[in-house]
Amino acid sequence: MWPFDAVNWLALSIPFAYLFILIGSLTVFSNLYRKRQAATAASLAPWFPPHLHRNIYLTLLHQENPKVPDSILKAALLRRATEDIHRIVQVRNAKQALQVLLQRGSVGDDLWQRFQRAEKEIEEELRDVVNEANAFAPNWGTTIFQSASEMAQNAHIRERLAEIQATAPAEKEWWEKRRTEISSNFMKELDEEKKSPTATEAASGKPAAKTGSDDDAVIVEAGGPTVNAGKGKKKKAKH
């Protein structure tokens, strides 16, 4: 068989081996590379912390002995929806800014990837909550997020109000102290006026005295502030 006899097999095996090694190494590399990429994407820190409300709801839902009554599950689902409202607001607010930053190259690609994963997750989460709500009561799914958003708002209002009202005792205390200070100063001033009308006269004639001797200036400086403060007091005491 002439063609096979004429072939030098050893010489031919070299290019084949070359091709095999080349393709083989490229495949191995691309496999490894892709796996590592996927691993890093998965290992990126999640955008949001663990969803505590969701965990509570699902734990209660799966509790068998004793079974958790429906009313509690509804309350837990409402809490879960409220937390979802917070999250969706965060995602919406962050999106615009993040897009701009990404275009300018101010933030890395992995941040964007994390964000997109969070967005997808929150969509899933919303769908899940609506389904659960519909399972409890027909059409609750259409209103649960309205209720939840009002709940979030209401909680915010009460928090702010409590914060402001908490300053009331301190303010009151400050004003009481200040008022007694003012009135005592005012009384002192009255007494002083009675005792030595000349001294106060000298003090109130401040601008004229300023050009006088050093002695005068010292008196003026000592008397000045109290007299001024006293004047302010007089107004307040009248009210």
Binding site: H53, I56, S71, I72, A75, L78, R79, W140, I144
Partner: peptide, 30 residues
Amino acid sequence: NALTTELQILNTLHRSLLSVDTATGTPPPP
């Protein structure tokens, strides 16, 4: 700490939810 506070909120919400007089026991729309 977060879990205990959350459970407190949940229990208060549950109590207020019990007083709702809708047929399904869910809060009515706003």
